[in-house]
Nucleic acid binder design. Structure first.
Lengths: 181, 181
DNA sequence: AGACACATGTAAAGCGTTACATGATTCT
DNA sequence: AGAATCATGTAACGCTTTACATGTGTCT
């Protein structure tokens, strides 16, 4: 594990919820936490290998479904300790990169119409994201009392809702300003 | 230039505003566009070298101030064309990664108090960011009519304002929910 | 005297994406 | 028959960060 690559902790964390294959982990990332995190197979499978080498997870054979045999990973006691160590340290970082804002920053080189179009496309994309988190929020609300973990899930969904709303409000305001120019 | 590395376009774009050294470019990135972009010296200096090799920028000697001689870069006609090509293509991507949300997602492994503390720290960090963009917005408002470029700058500052506000509102809501648990 | 800002850059390591390879099963 | 999904993984490439190296001028 050497250096601290967050992918390791994502995997360990997801495995505290339930045992899973690498494929399952990928799907879980793409649904549950896609609003604020991402990882590809090219990161997940090598990470699982290293985590196993260090004894933080262990392999189990799953029943065959289709395609190759499923390798079901579970977190070990030492993996749980490693995760807790990370969870207990402060000092998180945000990484954000918005190409659209970059292009808009240099918007003086284009026409107003081109810039407005770009902003509206951004708006539409994020309207879809907002609708999506709306569905998640709704279905989560129903099972909220079953498990404390659901509450934390809920908070992250709420975060998604807030930022997508902010994107949309900004886009509307920005287009209005451009029109008045 | 081969593959499309956005750093190239950031540099070309900034050079349309004015001629600059690599050092200046770094500072410009850290102030004007830090809300949505970032790049280190390790990217900027090599990029400038490649941009010059391809004829998209050209070197000029600046007067010595302190330390080594300043190398002032300016964009060429062909660099401008290259930039315009990029600006005219649609399909921008957002990259976001929030470690704090990841830790919160696994919050069930910690106490409520620890999670609330983490959220409040996030809130304070972003309150500072919000105050910062407030200052930018204020000083920009005064010079808005001088140059069309300022309007586009203004729109990106407005974006920062919206997301930092969203962060803060989410944090307040999240802490309230945790308290009611 | 010491810290800080100016200003250039390189090298190594780490991180992440994309493309490739393989093949079974299920659905249309 | 063909497409999609399940499921594993590797290799190459590209991007980003960090650490290092060097030295001057200014400010406290």
């Amino acid at each position: 594990m050497s250096k601290e690559n967050t992918t390791f902790y994502v995997i360990l964390g997801l495995l505290t919820h339930q045992d899973m294959t690498g494929y399952d982990i990928k799907k879980r990332i793409d649904t549950a936490i896609s609003n604020f995190w991402d990882a590809g197979y090219g990161q997940i499978y090598p990470a699982l290998k290293l985590l196993e080498k260090d004894g933080f997870v262990k392999k189990g054979l799953g029943e065959k479904s289709k395609g190759p045999n499923r390798i079901i990973y579970s977190i070990t006691e030492s993996g749980r300790n490693e995760l807790m160590k990370w969870l207990s340290t402060p000092g998180e970082k945000e990484y954000v990169k918005y190409e659209i804002l970059l292009k808009l920053f240099f918007g003086g080189l284009l026409t107003k119409a081109e810039n407005a179009k770009r902003i509206m496309e951004f708006r539409e994309r994020n309207k879809k994201n907002l609708d999506m988190v709306g569905l998640y929020k709704q279905s989560l609300s129903k099972v909220l009392k079953e498990d404390e973990d659901h509450y934390y899930y809920f908070l992250t969904v709420l975060f998604g809702e807030h930022i997508y709303k902010a994107y949309i409000e900004w886009a509307d305001e920005a287009v209005a300003i451009l029109k008045n120019l």
